[in-house]
Every structure is written in C-alpha cells, then in structure tokens.
C-alpha cells in the first residue's frame, strides 16, 4: 500500500514537472524542470527494481545530456526579447492534436491487452544479469551502437566547425 502511494505521488510529480517543461517561458527553467523530471523517472525505475538503469538515467541523461543543453543555452546568450512567442490558434490546435493523440493511444492499446496484473518483483535489472544479457545476446547491436556514436561525433564536429576565413 505504501509503495502504491509512493508510485502515485511520484507519477503526479513527474507529470507536473513535465508540464512545467512545456509551460515555462525561460529555456533555462525548462532545462532544470527536465532534469527534475528525469530524477522522478529514475525514482520510478527504482520502484520497478531496475537499479542500474536508474543510475544510468541520472548520470547519462541528467548529468551529461542536460548539461550539454545548458552549456549550449548559456553560450548562445539569448535575451528575453529573442524569446519567440507562438500564436494563440497554433497552441490551441497543438493542444487539441496532442489530446487526441493521448486518447487514441489509450483507446487503441487498452483493448489489445489487459494489463491489470501486478508487476512482479524480479532481479533482471541488477548489473550482473543485465551485463550477461548485453554482452552475449546483444553483443552485435552493442558494437554497432559504437559506430553510431562515432559518426554522430564526427557529424557534430563537422557541423559546428567555423568555416575557414578566406584571405583575399
């Protein structure tokens, strides 16, 4: 019963901070609310016995990717007057579209399965079991993802590089 209560409170906090990401005007506030959202999602991972993934989520997402966003945002040095505001009818139609997406996803997938069973307590989320699965069954995708990383890194350097100044 207490776990259920913790899960519901965490879920409410997650939805609230995710809403604040979208609603807050200043981009730095959005980044900080997104970091808080990732911490709450890591709390959900801990509740479902996926400890290693919770730590990875905090270190990689909140620690690396979000700090990258924050650095970029502070390097750009934007003013309040640069903040683009969207038109009213655009946001209204976006809210209608997103709400219908939510309704359709829930209505379409609810009939397909019945998910009323409880989540089991299992030990597949521990480091030992996860590493065994990753380095035996999923070894080839793991190696291919390193190629993806290298190509993304080269692409980022190539894109963000300042072009050579021509002397004429």
């Amino acid at each position: 019963m207490t776990l259920e209560l913790i899960a519901y409170i965490l879920g409410g906090l997650t939805i609230g901070s995710a809403l604040m990401v979208v609603l807050s005007n200043h981009p730095i506030r959005s980044v900080l609310y997104l970091v808080i959202t990732f911490f709450f999602i890591s709390g959900h991972f801990l509740l479902m016995n996926a400890q290693f993934l919770a730590i990875v989520n905090i270190i990689v997402y909140a620690g690396a990717i979000m700090v990258l966003f924050l650095f970029t945002l502070m390097l750009l040095n934007l003013n309040q007057s640069d903040e683009p505001n969207s038109k009213n009818y655009l946001s209204l139609s976006a809210i209608i579209g997103g709400g219908s997406l939510l309704l359709i996803l829930i209505a379409a997938l609810r009939d397909e399965f019945t998910f009323n069973e409880a989540i089991h307590e299992n030990y597949s989320g521990l480091v030992e079991n996860l590493g065994n699965t990753l380095f035996t069954k999923y070894l080839v995708p793991f190696e291919i993802s390193s190629i993806l990383f290298i190509s993304a890194m080269v692409g980022a350097v190539l894109l963000a590089k300042r072009e050579n100044q021509q002397i004429d």
Binding site: Y8, N116, A118, I119, H120
Partner: peptide
Amino acid sequence: LATIQGLTVDYYFIL
C-alpha cells in the same frame, strides 16, 4: 514471482 504490492503495468502505461 513475488508481486510488488499495488504496482500495475496499467498505471505505468497511462503515465
């Protein structure tokens, strides 16, 4: 398989 009290997949699906 011991079930974790009260947590369902349904709840996480909607969340």
